[in-house]
Simulated assay, not measured.
Amino acid sequence: MKKLQDKIIIITGGAGGIGSGIAKAMVKEGAIVTIVDIDEKTGKEMEKELQAFSPHSMFLQANLMDRENLGQIITKVTERYGKLDVLINNAHASKQATIENTTQADLDLSFGTGFYPTFYLMKAALPYLKITKGSVINFASGAGLNGHETQGAYAAAKEAIRGISRVAANEWGKFGINVNLISPIANSPGVEAWAKAQPEYYEAVKSKIPMGRFGDVEKDIGSVAVFLASEDSQYITGQTLMVDGGSIMLH
């Protein structure tokens, strides 16, 4: 029996980067995954890749900034599969700027793709997660924990996600639902863009990773997500797991 056999899982931002790594790791453990993404071309390509392992997995195109229609994502998945076991809120877009130069549009982008979808999808998923005693996996960032320069909009939304995740862990524990966060460092497209924009800062961060490398989106990040989505983690909730090679050691 595979760890996630026949679990119904939603992953936002699942067409590429960390989301796609998680999706690949999960279908190999028997999960039926719906990847939600705005990018139709990449989404369809990833759908084919996932269906080689999990024929019933699918791609669902959605703009997460369309707040009024977020609930339809949960509705479409539950109508098709009859249940929901795991919600993974991975999607997040942001622009880098100093606080001095951060605009309302920058804040709207970060909260509109990160915090608000996380909040509203959790809310819409709750009735279904109560039935399955399911799991929520959200995403934190060292940018928020350490306050990285030029990451004001991103860090603020990430810390808001951490806050609401802890509240949900407290409120939903009685339903058997666990809510945890992953704070990753991995070779995602976002990190690659950051490396080009700030190569010296990138190398400085890499040199301080005790394990000496950036993580692999499937093997390093995906495997931890599999653990959090499985029965093995049912007594863990409200935690931020630092999957970052030791970069930040929480006390």
Rank of each mutant, 00 (worst) to 15 (best):
K133D: 04
L181D: 07
F111M: 10
G112F: 05
H148V: 09
A125M: 10
G173H: 00
I131D: 14
E200I: 04
M122P: 02
V217I: 10
E159P: 15
P189Q: 02
N178Y: 08
G112D: 03
R166M: 15
A186V: 06
A125D: 10
G190T: 05
T118C: 12
L145V: 14
V136R: 04
V205F: 11
A155Q: 09
L145D: 08
G114W: 05
A153R: 01
N187T: 11
G173P: 00
D216E: 09
A193G: 11
T98H: 13
A125R: 09
A124D: 01
N138C: 10
I177T: 06
T118Q: 10
P117G: 03
L107D: 00
I131W: 04
F175G: 09
E200F: 02
K158T: 04
L181G: 06
G212L: 02
S110E: 05
A156I: 11
L121P: 00
T113R: 05
D106K: 07
A168D: 10
Q96F: 13
G152A: 12
Y202V: 02
K95H: 14
E218C: 01
Y128P: 02
L126S: 07
Y154W: 10
A143W: 06
Y116L: 11
V179F: 05
A156T: 15
M211F: 11
P199A: 09
L145C: 08
A140I: 04
E171C: 00
G163E: 03
K208R: 15
K219F: 06
E171Y: 01
L109I: 11
I182H: 07
F115Q: 04
I137S: 06
I131R: 13
Y201N: 14
S141A: 07
S188Y: 00
H148A: 15
V179W: 06
K133F: 03
G147M: 10
T118H: 11
I99N: 10
K158D: 03
I221C: 08
E218S: 09
N170R: 14
K130A: 02
G112C: 01
A140V: 08
S141Q: 05
E218F: 05
Y201S: 15
G112I: 02
N180I: 11
N178F: 11
I177E: 00
Q198A: 15
H148E: 12
A156V: 08
S165K: 06
A97D: 04
